[in-house]
Structures are given as C-alpha cells and as structure tokens.
C-alpha cells in the first residue's frame, strides 16, 4: 500500500486579460497580419514593444511596423513538447530578429529536426488563418527558402478596432497527495470509521489528524475512533452560486464537533429546512451506500439532525 493517497487535480481557467494600449497595439497588429514594434528612447526597435520605456519609464507611444521575415539569433530544440506549446511534435523555440527590429522575438520555429536549424538562418512568420489578436496568431516561424518567396506585409492596422483584451486559457495538471495522517483518516472513512489522532503534547484530538499539531508543532499520533454524532458549533447558509461549485445552493455548511474530538469538521447539513438549523443542534453522519464509498469524506453524504435536545452553549462555546 502506498504511504499516502493521491489524486489528480486540474487547475484551469480562461483568464481574461486587458492588454492596455501597448500590448493591445502589438496584438492588433498580429490580428491584422503585421508585426508592430516599439521604438525605445535609446533608439532601439523592440519586438514586442515594452509597455514602458526602459530608460525614461514613460509609457511607450512610438510604434513602427517591422517585417514578417527575420534571422534566427538563437534557438533550442524541444524534443518533448508540453501541452499548450505551439506545435505538438518536436520543434525549435527561436529568438528571431525581424527585419527592421534591433532585438529578437521569441516564438516557435517549425522544423522537423535540429539539423534543419542554425543560428543566422532566415525565417518568416506563418500566420494563422483565423486571427483574433493573440500571440498565437503567429502559428510559428518557418524557414525562408528564398527571399522572393517571403509573404507580403499585411495591410496595416485597423486603427478603430484596436485589441484591448485577450483570453488566455491556463490549464495545469497536478497530482495532489494527502499527508500520511490525512491518508489514515481517508482510509478509515473507506471502512466506515472516522479516525482522529491525539497530539502527544497537548492531548487534543484532531480530526482529520495533522502532520503538525498547530499549537505544538509535532505530529498527532495516537489514533482515536470518533463518534459519528456531534454538535453543530456554527454554520452558514450558502445561497450564492459560483463557478466550480459542486453542491447546488442553498445548502448549509456547518462546523460539526464530533463527540470525542477537540476540533470541528466542516460538512453539509440536510434533512431539515435550512432556516431551522441551529447552533448547538445535535447531528449524526448519514453515510452513502457502502458500494459508493471511496477514500474520501464524501462517503458521509451529510449530517442529519438526531432529534435530541440541543447541546448547551457552554459545552461548545470554546470551539467558536
């Protein structure tokens, strides 16, 4: 058995970026098939244009168009492309100094072998068919066989339709692991048990157990099986829907102090109208059918009122 439990997590969002005038100008150019550079106060023509001048720190306002052809000033081979890169087969990343520019620009170079690349080689932009105003409007650079075959420059910027925003999808895949203490807790749940652990220093029972008791800075150790009955210390009624939400609102999210534990767990309260949930209410775990169990606290579908009298405020007030 692995020491810890793990599961994949994907963190994904399509970020909506406002570009400001300088980046917007550059992306507008790409949309319209033109590479826009900025002239900085030292006279250099820079691609992409920096938002602020590196010397005067003023917002950049001097734009010039440069060619879609250029020279490779450095390159590196990408033997194993990662998700999202411009090409899904081995390719080169290159720094390309476009004709008319003084500094190179980073993008992919579409070749099939490192033998086809060299510093100093001539390349040109391969434009995407449908362009939206993003750096990916350039699919990649491609080798320029002879200068006469260079694709003609674009038709100029549509000044009254400047790009002001760009959507950037960011999707990252992680393998999330639980700590060994948490793993013991989740494995207990897979057997229908709620397992806490006691801190060897302060003797408080933590559920889930912790790699460090937050009071003493030492791992909790001695296992304690907890009751599935407990007291609602405090709660909130969630009425607001939001992106990524797993439970349909309205629902009651409550801190439940299980009998025998010194810290409350956060869970869902059902089987009672939300506006009748009370602090001090006694509740009991309602388990999902056993065949649906996994190593997760979601084995407990929710907590449900026991019908017993409410706990006295003094019995849980120190847990608020």
């Amino acid at each position: 058995m692995a020491r810890t439990l793990s599961a994949p997590v994907t963190v994904a969002f399509d970020y909506t970026r406002s570009t400001g005038p300088v980046v917007g100008r550059f992306l507008t150019g790409l949309r319209d098939g033109v590479v826009v550079a900025g002239r900085t106060s030292d006279g250099r023509v820079v691609v992409p244009p920096p938002e602020f001048d590196p010397i005067t720190h003023e917002a950049l306002t001097d734009f010039v168009e440069v060619a879609a052809t250029g020279t490779v000033s450095s390159w590196t081979w990408v033997p194993e492309p990662v998700k999202g890169q411009p090409l899904d087969h081995p390719f080169a990343f290159a720094l390309v100094t476009l004709d008319g520019a003084d500094t190179p620009f980073l993008h992919a170079l579409h070749v099939t072998s490192p033998d086809e690349v060299s510093t100093g080689m001539r390349v040109q932009v391969r434009w995407r068919g449908e362009r939206t105003g993003a750096v990916t409007d350039i699919e990649a650079f491609v080798p320029l066989a002879d200068e006469d075959s260079a694709s003609p420059a674009g038709g100029g910027l549509l000044e009254d339709h400047l790009v002001t925003g760009v959507v950037t999808p960011v999707e990252l895949d992680y393998l999330y692991a639980a700590s060994p203490e948490e793993s013991a807790f989740y494995r207990g749940l897979a057997e229908g048990k709620i397992l806490g652990q006691r801190c060897p220093a302060c003797h408080k029972v933590y559920v889930p157990p912790r790699s460090a008791c937050p009071v003493d800075g030492v791992a909790t150790t001695e296992e304690v099986e907890l009751s599935e009955v407990g007291t609602i210390t405090t709660f909130c009624i969630v009425n607001v829907p939001f992106l990524g939400q797993k439970i349909k609102p309205p629902y009651v999210s409550a801190y439940v102090l299980l009998d025998g534990a010194d810290i409350a767990i956060l869970h869902l309260i059902l089987d009672i109208p939300a506006d009748e949930v009370r602090m001090g209410m006694r509740v009991k775990a309602v388990w999902k059918p056993r065949e649906e169990w996994g190593t997760t606290i979601e084995n407990i579908s929710h907590f449900s009122p026991t019908g017993d009298p409410d706990a006295d405020y003094d019995t849980y007030k120190q847990h608020l």
Binding site: V238, K246, I300
Partner: peptide, 13 residues
C-alpha cells in the same frame, strides 16, 4: 475554492 481531493466540497469562497 479549487476543490481539494478527498475533502468535502462545501467551501464557498
């Protein structure tokens, strides 16, 4: 509120 595996997804910002 990016869900954490094994946890109860009751978090709401």
């Amino acid at each position: 509120s990016v869900p954490v595996p094994f946890n109860m997804p009751v978090h709401a910002g």
